[in-house]
Lab assay of single mutants.
Amino acid sequence: KKVTINGVEIKFNNPEEAVKFALELAKRLNLRIEFHGDQIKIE
């Protein structure tokens, strides 16, 4: 399963991993996060 985070394609074994990764990243950098299907936007 491929997920695009800020235009960067990252391959994950499952979608939950991708979501956890994105949330952790957003929390660490104190950023806002948006989900659009397989696209995750962090700003």
Rank of each mutant, 00 (worst) to 15 (best):
I5P: 03
K11F: 15
K27W: 09
E16G: 09
N6G: 10
K20Q: 08
D38M: 07
L29M: 08
Q39K: 07
F21A: 03
F12S: 02
R28T: 05
N14C: 14
I5Q: 02
I10P: 00
R32K: 10
L23R: 05
R28C: 15
E24W: 14
L31V: 10
I10K: 03
E17H: 06
F12D: 00
F35C: 14
I33A: 02
E16K: 09
L23Y: 08
T4M: 12
K2V: 15
A18P: 02
R32G: 02
K41S: 09
I42D: 01
I40C: 05
L29G: 04
I40R: 00
I33E: 00
D38I: 09
L31D: 00
R28F: 09
K41R: 13
E34Y: 12
K27A: 12
G37P: 09
E9F: 10
F12K: 00
I42L: 14
A22D: 00
G37D: 09
A22N: 00
K11P: 06
E16T: 09
F12T: 03
E34P: 01
E9P: 07
R32V: 07
N14A: 06
F21K: 02
G37H: 08
T4L: 14
A22E: 00
I42H: 02
K2C: 15
K41L: 13
G7V: 08
N6M: 11
H36A: 11
P15N: 08
E16Q: 11
I33F: 04
H36M: 12
E43Y: 15
K41P: 01
A18V: 09
N13A: 13
Q39M: 13
E24C: 15
K2Y: 13
V3G: 03
E34I: 14
I10W: 10
N13K: 13
G7K: 05
E16C: 15
N13H: 08
D38K: 05
N13D: 12
K41D: 04
I40Q: 01
L25S: 00
E9V: 14
E16I: 11
T4Y: 14
N13G: 08
I33K: 00
I33D: 00
A22F: 12
I33V: 12
K1P: 12
A22T: 04
L23M: 10
R28D: 02
E17Y: 10
A18N: 03
I5R: 02
F21T: 02
E17F: 07
A26D: 00
N6S: 05
K27P: 01
P15D: 09
E24S: 09
H36W: 12
I33Y: 03
K1V: 15
N13T: 11
K2D: 04
E43H: 13
F21Q: 02
A26Q: 03
I40K: 01
E24N: 07
Q39N: 13
L31M: 11
E17L: 10
E34F: 12
H36N: 11
L31N: 00
F21N: 00
L31R: 01
K1N: 11
E34A: 07
R28Y: 11
K27Q: 09
K41C: 14
A18E: 01
G37Q: 09
V19K: 07
R28N: 04
V3K: 02
K11W: 15
K11S: 12
N14M: 08
F12E: 00
A26P: 00
V3I: 09
L25A: 04
E17D: 12
H36K: 10
I10Q: 02
V8T: 06
I42S: 01
E16Y: 12
I10Y: 14
F21R: 03
N30A: 06
E43P: 03
G37S: 07
D38R: 04
N6L: 13
R28G: 04
V8C: 15
Q39F: 14
G7T: 04
V19W: 14
L23C: 14
K27L: 11
I33C: 08
L29H: 06
E17G: 06
F21S: 01
V3E: 03
D38N: 11
L31E: 00
P15R: 13
E9W: 12
I42W: 02
K1L: 14
E9T: 14
L25H: 01
N14Y: 08
I42K: 01
N6V: 10
D38G: 07
G37K: 09
E43R: 11
D38W: 12
A18T: 04
G7A: 04
K27M: 10
L31P: 00
F35D: 01
V8R: 10
L31G: 08
F35S: 02
H36C: 14
I10E: 01
K20T: 06
N13V: 09
K41T: 12
K41Q: 06
K27N: 07
L29S: 02
E17P: 04
